[in-house]
């Protein structure tokens, strides 16, 4: 018996030791080992760019406009803090972020950026969440629209040049082909303008990012509701300029560690984003 106990104990100890060794190999938050793990990032302040008009990803804090909050911003902060990398947020219009990343004016584009093969030719991604499209409507869904197919005859708003606009135009064609009234598509230049269209009843539906639409409906239950949602299969990631491999690796390692600690889900819950949208960190270069 004793021998058996001893054997078990040794086996357990061995197993535990191996497991600890394995755990030690996995990315962890070790701010004091920055020089050892990412020597190229020592002494560097990482500039990450974001557009503070994209709630719940990046926005101003309602109680202190000088503070930047949001799911993407909090995640980025968690990742850089994890490695002890100092950072600086660069706030600008969304459409200026990708050119600035490519030209090196900023190091990371971290703001609701969908992965596309076209963009991946110029930047490398670390993917961390799934994207979806949400349809925002007035509280109570007065026209009872529950899917994109049910939109024939409706007026819908979408951001200019977005995948949502394309989907709505596509649906418009399908409606008219089926002999039904088409979809009237209104495009807006900035999100707030789109939301105003729904608020004033000029549009029945606004199609936009799912997390955004959901957080709006949760925050303003008397005004808005989610009519329906579509999982588009797009994934969202942080992007660095091609060839910036050390930073890419640091971001990847950081997200893995933050995900393992449950921090990403906690952040998502703070901003009322469905935690199921979290995907395991993945580097994608092409």
């Amino acid at each position: 018996m004793t021998a058996r106990v001893w054997t078990s104990a040794v086996a357990f100890a061995l197993a535990f030791g191996t497991a600890s060794a394995a755990l030690a190999q996995a990315p962890a938050c070790e701010p004091d080992k920055l020089a050892e793990k990412y020597p190229g990032l020592v002494g560097k302040t990482v500039k990450f760019g974001a557009d503070p008009q994209t709630p719940p990803y990046t926005m101003r804090d309602g109680t202190d406009f000088d503070k930047i909050i949001g799911a993407d911003t909090d995640l980025a902060k968690a990742v850089f803090d994890c490695h002890g990398i100092p950072y600086e947020i660069f706030l600008g219009g969304w459409s200026g972020l990708l050119p600035a990343t490519i030209s090196g004016q900023i190091d990371v584009f971290w703001n609701n950026l969908y992965y596309t093969a076209e963009r991946a030719k110029q930047v490398d991604y670390v993917l961390y969440m799934q994207a979806g499209t949400g349809a925002l409507t007035q509280a109570g869904n007065p026209k009872s629209i529950d899917s994109i197919e049910a939109m024939c005859g409706a007026t819908a708003a979408a951001g200019l040049g977005t995948v949502e606009e394309a989907a709505l135009k596509d649906q418009d064609g399908k409606c008219t082909a089926a002999g039904k009234p088409g979809v009237t598509v209104m495009t807006y230049p900035d999100l707030a303008a789109g939301i105003r269209l729904v608020q004033t009843g000029r549009a029945d539906i606004m199609m936009s990012d799912l997390a955004l639409v959901q957080s709006l409906a949760i925050d303003n239950p008397d005004t808005y509701a989610v009519a329906f949602k579509i999982l588009t299969g797009f994934t969202i990631g942080a992007a660095v300029k091609n060839g910036n491999d050390e930073l890419l690796q640091a971001i990847y390692d950081g997200i893995v560690a933050v995900q393992a600690a449950g921090t990403q889900k906690a952040i998502f819950e703070t901003y009322k984003i469905d935690p199921d949208l979290v995907v395991a960190a993945e580097i994608r270069k092409d």
Partner: peptide, 14 residues
């Protein structure tokens, strides 16, 4: 203007 848009983007009190 950009700051005003940011506030609106946060609370929609355009």
């Amino acid at each position: 203007t950009f700051r005003a848009q940011q506030i609106v983007g946060q609370n929609f009190r355009f």
